[in-house]
């Protein structure tokens, strides 16, 4: 891809101030799109409908997706709304604000689908979709994780594999950080 005005435009991006941000598979594209929308929602002046209400709704739909609450059809609606905002907004802000949504939808459709259809965040960034699990094979039953858990979500006898109650777990990650055996992972 040519890093020039036309090349970037063709791939659904734009030159902006010339900065470039490199992200890898550990960054969730839905969350990134949501981050950008959060910015436009805040920067919207409120004069035109598509930007004032449309961007807010776009943000809310992305939020719903990252929470694993999206339904069948939401992605179609998301794309339609993004296109209409681009097509009808009064100024450059609203006319470009849906770009991160549309380009991530185009280039990373599988990430969106994973969130919607499987309630999974492939990058492991969407907290609501994460689950911390202890591998019974690797766990030595040292009890350290149970002791650091701030909400007592981890139980198990000494020297036996431990278990995380996902209904109690607040996904703070303290257990994973402390585990010396790499027995705790995110699913």
């Amino acid at each position: 891809m040519a890093i020039d005005y036309d090349g970037l435009l063709a791939s659904g991006s734009m030159m902006g101030s010339g900065g470039m941000i490199v992200m890898d598979e550990d960054d969730c594209m839905v969350s990134v799109a949501k981050f950008y929308l959060d910015f436009t929602v805040e920067e919207s002046c409120g004069k035109c409908t598509p930007c004032r209400i449309g961007n807010k709704r776009l943000y809310e739909m992305l939020d719903k997706i990252t929470l694993g609450k999206a339904e069948e059809g939401d992605l179609t609606r998301l794309r339609n709304l993004a296109n209409v905002i681009k097509d009808t907004a009064l100024c450059g802000l609203g006319q470009t604000s849906p770009n991160p949504v549309l380009s991530t939808l185009d280039n990373f459709p599988e990430e969106y689908e994973a969130h919607v259809k499987e309630s999974k965040c492939p990058a492991g960034q969407c907290r609501a979709l994460m689950q911390y699990v202890i591998s019974p094979k690797l766990c030595t039953g040292c009890t350290l994780c149970a002791r650091v858990c701030p909400v007592d979500a981890i139980s198990g006898d000494k020297k036996l594999p431990h278990f995380i109650d996902t209904s109690v777990c607040i996904k703070c990650g303290a257990c994973m950080e402390k585990c010396k055996f790499g027995a705790i992972s995110i699913q």
Partner: peptide
């Protein structure tokens, strides 16, 4: 700062 770089 809540710019893109800081955010990620």
């Amino acid at each position: 700062c809540m710019g893109t770089a800081c955010y990620v």
